[in-house]
């Protein structure tokens, strides 16, 4: 579907948990600047697919390629250096760090691990690491939260902080697990505009999402999973009419796919 060289490619990836095959021969490709949605009913294996791509779980078989490089055998912590960053379905900010400290975690992704650890990020209030993080936070409209503890912040703000944290790793592929969940329509629109900017800078974006209005407005291509198998891959506008997708979602839920009605 994508003519350009794939930035992220899954090649026949499978994963079992005990006797249950949660991902079964999954293959897809995402090009630079592309925006792809990964959808499917609950338990279809969407988050598991993310966990296999980021290395949180090892794959049983198949390959994961990032910009042509096979990262299947790389431990999770090294994959971010190859340009793979993500956010989480249930926000995972560090509770004992401030907002700016949270986003600064990923900022040294591309420096040597040892020298990065010795960078005096908190010794003076004005230093280049703080300034870089503050600039990115300010660009996202989060500047005034920089020194707040993360726990007390509203849900929507926490989600934005997680996105900034992922972006500070300077990724080439961004995996977003339900970025619009829990956001009100205005916040969702703001998120979409922000992600469109991110995508224009060349970053490939894969979203797991249930909000079909968001997907309709943001993604051009949809990959549909059911019981760990890819049952459809098509342009966003066509997904609601796809017979196998309708069958997977059954009856009333298929109304959720009336993107045109939005």
């Amino acid at each position: 579907m994508s003519s350009a060289r794939p930035m992220l490619a899954l090649d026949d990836v499978s994963k079992r948990f005990g006797g249950l095959k949660v991902i079964d021969g999954l293959s897809f490709e995402v090009a630079a600047s592309e925006r792809v949605a990964l959808i499917g009913p609950n338990g279809a294996g969407k988050t598991t697919a993310f966990n296999l791509i980021t290395g949180a779980y090892p794959v049983d078989s198949g390959r994961v390629l990032l910009d042509g490089i096979d990262i299947t055998a790389l431990p999770a912590r090294k994959r971010i250096r190859h340009g793979l960053a993500r956010t989480f379905q249930n926000i995972r900010l560090m509770a004992h760090l401030s907002v700016i400290e949270n986003v600064m975690i990923t900022q040294a992704t591309h420096s040597g691990a040892f020298t990065a650890m010795l960078q005096p990020v908190n010794l003076w209030r004005e230093n280049r690491w703080r300034r870089e993080a503050l600039d990115v936070l300010a660009a996202a409209g989060l500047g005034r939260y920089a020194d707040e503890p993360t726990g007390a912040l509203p849900y929507g703000i926490q989600k934005q902080v997680e996105l900034v944290r992922a972006l500070l790793a300077k990724p080439r592929v961004l995996l977003l697990d339900e970025p619009a969940a829990g956001l009100n329509p205005a916040e969702t629109d703001a998120l979409r505009e922000r992600l469109e900017m991110v995508s224009r800078s060349g970053i490939a974006i894969v979203v797991v999402e249930h909000d079909m209005h968001f997907i309709g407005a943001f993604c051009r291509r949809v990959i549909v999973l059911n019981f760990g198998c890819k049952i459809a891959e098509c342009a966003t506008g066509e997904v609601h009419a796809h017979p196998r997708v309708r069958e997977a979602y059954l009856g009333s839920e298929s109304e959720a796919f009336d993107v045109e009605a939005a």
């Binding site: 999770a76 912590r77 995972r92 975690i105 040294a108 010795l118 990020v121 908190n122 790793a169």
Partner: peptide
């Protein structure tokens, strides 16, 4: 604790899995 080590070690004790995925050893 004024270096990146300080925030990294806190991150690791707060959430090992997320810290690992964020590239921390």
């Amino acid at each position: 604790f004024s270096t990146r080590f300080g925030i990294s070690i806190t991150a690791v004790s707060d959430d090992e899995t997320a810290a690992d995925l964020m590239g921390l050893s």
